[in-house]
Structures are given as structure tokens and as C-alpha cells.
């Protein structure tokens, strides 16, 4: 039987110029439950489905605050995510202490990118087995980045990673043009709807398994203050879940729901 000799470590190129260990690490991301992120001109939201190992165990958290202005959603190895999360917290806090401002989200993301790249070029190291969506607001507004185990980081308008996330991405691509002008509540609703696309057949969004996080930029004219990154769980997300559930039923009734709640 043919055996692939080129996939034992991350310092060996295949004859096609691929590094299989890195590609396998990317597979680990697909094992994690799905997370979705979307940006508008004013806000960035993350939504996630949490999983529990068994009926009586608690749910694994998916969304984490890093600093006042930025947070992450994770898919893949949770313990690898914790390493990156701690690193990001240190960098972000250090920046706040020395310059008295929020660290630009791009700089923060590029730092974990570089950190992850090193793991793909040295023997004895392994790539991180986790993908992240990094959401935050800074002086230039709201941002959403995707981080991959290869060290690749890219800024997105909206994105989804994790198990069955292709369905969520299809939803996002379909509605891409609407996001920019969305209000806070509208954006969350889109996030939850994208999330639902990726659920397995008879699974539903519940207050137990759903997490939502939001951050808002300060308005350019100084009117609105920045909304700090905050994660919502449990009963706090009930209204949002119900709002998208209603809509589905309404849609089944023939009309697609246009009467969405717009943030005042």
C-alpha cells in the first residue's frame, strides 16, 4: 500500500510543495462546533454553538473576551486556544499600559499569526490545532479576522469556521451586501440565522447551547461611545433566539420577515 512519507512532521515539503501536517491541523478546526462572526459599519458580533460531552456535563465555552475592545471565538483544540488567548491578553494589556489606547486589532492578530507560523517551520513543534475568529473595535472601527493553524490571518466581512460551517458561509455570502448597514440587533439575528444553517438535522438553538458576543465602535462624530466586547450566555440570549425562531415560522407561512427589530 502506498504510504505518505511526507506527512510525519511540519518541516517536510511534499513534492507538490504542500505541508501535510499543517493541512491536518486545519482538519482539527473542522472538528470543533461552529462559530460565526459578522461586521457592520458600527458593530461586530460573534455567535457560537456550544457542545457538552454528555448530558450531565457543562457546555464548553466558545467565546472569550481578550480585552475591553476585543474577543475571540474558537473552533478546534480548546487548550491550544487557551495558549493563544493568554498570549493575546498579555499583548493587549501591555499595549494598553504603555500607550494608553486599545491595541489595533490587526496588530494583535498578526502577532498570533507570526507565533503560529514558527510552529510550522521547526522540527519538534506542531501547528496549533485551533482556528479563531477575532472580533474587535479600534480607532478605525469594527474588525473581524480569521486565524488558521498555518498562521494565515485574513480580515473578513463575515465568516464561519468549525463543523459544517460551509452552510453558514453560504448564508453569509448570500446576505453579504446587507451587513454593512445593519444595526446591532439585526446583525445578531443574521449571525444566529447563519448558525442555524450549520446545525445538524434535529438540533436547535437553546439558551444552554448558544453564545452571543458584541462589540460596538464609537461613532466618528463622537456621538456614540464605544460598546465594550461582551459575551452573552443563558437567559441573556433567549430573546435573540426567539426572534429568529419566530421569523422562520413566519417565513414558513409564506412571507419572509422584513419587520426586523432595528437598533434605535
Amino acid at each position: 500500500m502506498f504510504r505518505n512519507n511526507y506527512d510525519n512532521d511540519s518541516v517536510t515539503f511534499s513534492p507538490q510543495g504542500r505541508i501535510f501536517q499543517v493541512e491536518y491541523a486545519a482538519e482539527a478546526v473542522k472538528q470543533g462546533s461552529v462559530v460565526v462572526g459578522i461586521t457592520s459599519k458600527t458593530h461586530v458580533v460573534l455567535v457560537a454553538v456550544k457542545r457538552n460531552a454528555e448530558e450531565l456535563s457543562s457546555y464548553q465555552k466558545k467565546l472569550f473576551p481578550i480585552d475591553e475592545h476585543v474577543g475571540i471565538a474558537i473552533a478546534g483544540l480548546t487548550s491550544d486556544a487557551r495558549v493563544l488567548s493568554n498570549f493575546m491578553k498579555q499583548q493587549s494589556l501591555g499595549h494598553r499600559l504603555t500607550y494608553g489606547r486599545s491595541m489595533p486589532v490587526r496588530s494583535l492578530v498578526e502577532m498570533i499569526g507570526s507565533k503560529a507560523q514558527t510552529n510550522t517551520q521547526h522540527y519538534g513543534k506542531r501547528p496549533y490545532g485551533v482556528g479563531l475568529l477575532v472580533a474587535g473595535v479600534d480607532e478605525s472601527g469594527p474588525h473581524l479576522f480569521e486565524f488558521q493553524p498555518s498562521g494565515m490571518t485574513e480580515e473578513m466581512v463575515a465568516f464561519a469556521i468549525g463543523a459544517r460551517s460551509q452552510m453558514a458561509r453560504t448564508y453569509l455570502e448570500k446576505n453579504l451586501d446587507k451587513f454593512a448597514s445593519c444595526g446591532r440587533e439585526e446583525l445578531i439575528a443574521h449571525g444566529l440565522k447563519a448558525l442555524k444553517e450549520s446545525l445538524v438535522q434535529d438540533k436547535e438553538l437553546t439558551v444552554e447551547n448558544t453564545s452571543v458576543a458584541v462589540a460596538g465602535a464609537k461613532s466618528k462624530d463622537g456621538g456614540a461611545k464605544a460598546e465594550p466586547f461582551k459575551v452573552y450566555d443563558g437567559q441573556e440570549v433567549n430573546a435573540w433566539i426567539e426572534s429568529v425562531a419566530d421569523e422562520k415560522e413566519a417565513a414558513a407561512g409564506g412571507e419572509s420577515g422584513e419587520g426586523m427589530d432595528v437598533d434605535a
Binding site: 500607550y99 489606547r101 489595533p104 490587526r106 480607532e139 478605525s140
Partner: peptide, 21 residues
């Protein structure tokens, strides 16, 4: 680290370190 989607180099500089920073 300048914001790549900024309108101009000047606009990007405004988003950089200010005097207070």
C-alpha cells in the same frame, strides 16, 4: 500597522499614535 483601508496616508496616520499615546 497602518490601517490598509484608510482613505489616505494622512487619514491612516490619524488612527496611529497621537500625542496623548
Amino acid at each position: 500597522d497602518q490601517e490598509p483601508t484608510a482613505e489616505s496616508a494622512e487619514a491612516a496616520a490619524k488612527e496611529g499614535l497621537n500625542a496623548a499615546n
